[in-house]
């Protein structure tokens, strides 16, 4: 799209959405937010880049190995579930508190790592769908020509 306003605004908005999605991800376990919403937020930011600049440009920029990323995300979430199984129940959440030097008391929840897995899955799935759709030259494997 050849809009000057959009081209100027989009990079700024990308940073804002990334920061906001990180906030949602970190904030999610007791308050509104979480991996799914944060993932959607990140993906929306990248989609806006895609809309603003050329489709080819977007494809070159964001043609990351999304399939690997969502596999690892899914594996991370499954591992957190298995970690809960160690204490007797699948997907059981647990909280650990650490006293780190300089930073102070830090509370780590296993639910947070589950959320990170979900975040990776959501971002990667959305963007792999987009790369499939946007690249007109990409031929899905096995399809008839």
């Amino acid at each position: 799209m050849r809009s000057l306003i959009l081209r100027t605004i989009a990079p700024i908005v990308l940073h804002l959405t990334l920061i906001f999605s990180l906030f949602l991800l970190l904030y999610g376990h007791n308050q509104p937010g979480g991996g799914f919403i944060a993932g959607l937020m990140t993906a929306v930011g990248i989609v806006l880049q895609w809309v603003t600049f050329d489709a080819d440009d977007g494809w070159h920029r964001y043609n990351w190995p999304w399939d690997r990323i969502f596999s690892y995300g899914l594996a991370l979430s499954a591992c957190v579930g298995l970690f809960g199984l160690l204490s007797g129940y699948f997907l059981k959440g647990s909280a650990y508190e650490f006293n780190l030097p300089f930073i102070g008391e830090v509370e780590v929840l296993t639910a947070f790592f589950f959320d990170v897995g979900v975040y990776a899955v959501v971002v990667a799935v959305l963007l792999s769908i987009l790369t499939t759709f946007c690249d007109r030259r990409a031929v899905i494997r096995g399809a008839p020509k």
Binding site: F36, V125, I129, T132, F133, I140, A143, P144
Partner: peptide
Amino acid sequence: VISFAVTAFLLVIALMAYRS
């Protein structure tokens, strides 16, 4: 989330059909 996955699949199918 589930309907999102199904819609994505259907869109890919529609795209494949369109390309063929």
